[in-house]
Amino acid sequence: MFYPNSPQTSPQLTQIPYGQQYAMMQRQIQQPYHPFATTEPQARLYPYHYQGPIQQEQGGFITQQSTAASPQYVQMRVTPVDQSIMSGYPNQTANGSSSSSFNYNIHPQQQQQQQQQQQQLRHHAMPVGSVPLQDDRYRKQLIVNYLAPDVTSTDLHELFSRFGELDGARIIYDKQTNMSKGYGFVYFCHAEDAKEAVERMSGYEFHGKWLKVGYSTNPLNIVPSNSSPYVHAGSRGAAG
């Protein structure tokens, strides 16, 4: 039997160049792979992502010199942007860049009308829970959420009447099932009393439920100042 490094198959040491006398086997001759043993700084910083320098080929596509990437890492192929796409944008300079302001050559009167329309939209648009300043009635009506099913309009009136005089209180019921929808409205005579009720009743436990109280901004629920107070009856038909 002959071994790869046996004296019968191995040459004389004098015939082997210096430095390879003890590297006779194939696994010894093959050098191990060192990912950080390279002179390129990109490979030292990113050993798993770097795959060699990027070269520009004919046709405008950018390719990489090395083989496919590892399945664990996804390499994105980048193509140059066609400058003709950006030619339609206004205020574009000769080098292809555009300024931040756009001039669509709008007539001054049209621009003024658009600004007025935007101001009107901001004036009428009102986020949930906010209180408008032009109508004091919005500051007097509250919406009470997360009410228990057994709470009546009379219970709601008695709960909030300790903060001040009320114009009314009612629970909203479903017309088909005649069941409470879980929320109601309270109408105060003074805005200061309503503000105190919002601050003190939010998070209050009532009939096993934690109440959420806020201003009601729905104009359909506003009680006119010259109208008669609501009837605080315990029956659902009268309260709904």
Rank of each mutant, 00 (worst) to 15 (best):
Q26H: 13
Q42Y: 05
Q15E: 12
G203I: 11
P219R: 01
T14D: 04
M86T: 07
S97Q: 11
K181W: 02
Q15T: 04
V131L: 05
S99G: 02
L147K: 00
Q119R: 03
I54V: 10
L159H: 12
T177C: 03
E40W: 14
G59Q: 13
R122Q: 09
R137E: 07
F206P: 13
S180Q: 07
N91E: 11
A68N: 13
G203H: 12
S227A: 10
P11K: 00
N218T: 01
L211G: 05
Y230Q: 09
P80I: 13
G214L: 05
D155Y: 06
M76Y: 01
Y183N: 12
H207V: 03
S227R: 07
K212Y: 07
G184T: 07
S216E: 04
C189Y: 08
F206E: 09
Q117G: 02
I171D: 15
T38I: 03
S66C: 06
P53A: 13
V231A: 15
Y50G: 03
T67N: 07
P127V: 11
R170M: 06
H232F: 07
P90D: 01
Q15V: 04
N145D: 01
Q65E: 13
R139H: 01
A238F: 00
R44T: 14
N145A: 10
E158P: 14
A43R: 08
Q31N: 14
Q31M: 15
H49Y: 11
F163C: 04
Q58T: 14
G96Q: 11
S216L: 01
P132S: 08
Y89W: 05
H190W: 14
Q31Y: 08
D82W: 10
Y204G: 03
S225V: 04
S228M: 14
E57R: 05
N218G: 08
H34E: 03
T152L: 08
A239V: 11
S180E: 08
T217V: 01
I54D: 03
A68K: 00
Y46F: 12
T79G: 08
Q83A: 04
S101F: 06
E199K: 10
G88L: 09
G184Q: 09
Q8N: 07
Q75Y: 05
Q65M: 01
V81N: 13
P71K: 11
V186M: 02
V144I: 04
Q83T: 06
Q112F: 14
R170E: 03
D136A: 07
M76P: 07
Q72H: 11
H123V: 09
R170A: 10
V78K: 13
Y138D: 00
Q134I: 02
H49C: 10
T154H: 01
F2Y: 13
Q120H: 02
E40R: 09
P35N: 09
S100Q: 12
I85Y: 05
Q51R: 03
S84M: 06
R139K: 10
M179Y: 14
V151H: 11
P53R: 05
Y46H: 01
K175V: 07
H34G: 14
R170T: 12
T217S: 03
A37V: 11
L133T: 10
L142I: 09
S6L: 11
R162S: 07
A69M: 04
Q134M: 00
I62A: 02
Y50E: 12
I106Q: 13
S99V: 04
P80M: 03
S98T: 13
E192N: 06
I172F: 03
S130C: 09
E40M: 11
P17G: 14
Q58G: 04
H124Q: 02
E199L: 13
S101Y: 10
S97R: 09
P35Q: 08
L13G: 09
N91F: 03
F160Q: 00
P80Q: 01
A148Y: 14
P132G: 04
F102H: 14
K140D: 00
Q112K: 11
N178S: 05
E57W: 06
H190E: 13
I172E: 03
T63W: 12
I85L: 05
H34S: 15
P108H: 00
Q118Y: 08
Q109K: 13
S235T: 04
I54W: 04
Y33S: 01
S87K: 05
V128G: 13
P108W: 15
Y18T: 03
Q119G: 04
S130M: 15
Y138R: 03
S228H: 13
Y215P: 00
Y138L: 11
Y230D: 10
V144L: 09
G184W: 06
D135E: 08
N145V: 01
G59A: 11
Y33K: 11
P7S: 12
Q112C: 03
Y146M: 06
S98F: 15
Q109W: 14
A233M: 00
S10C: 13
R139V: 00
Y22R: 03
Q26A: 00
R200T: 10
T38S: 13
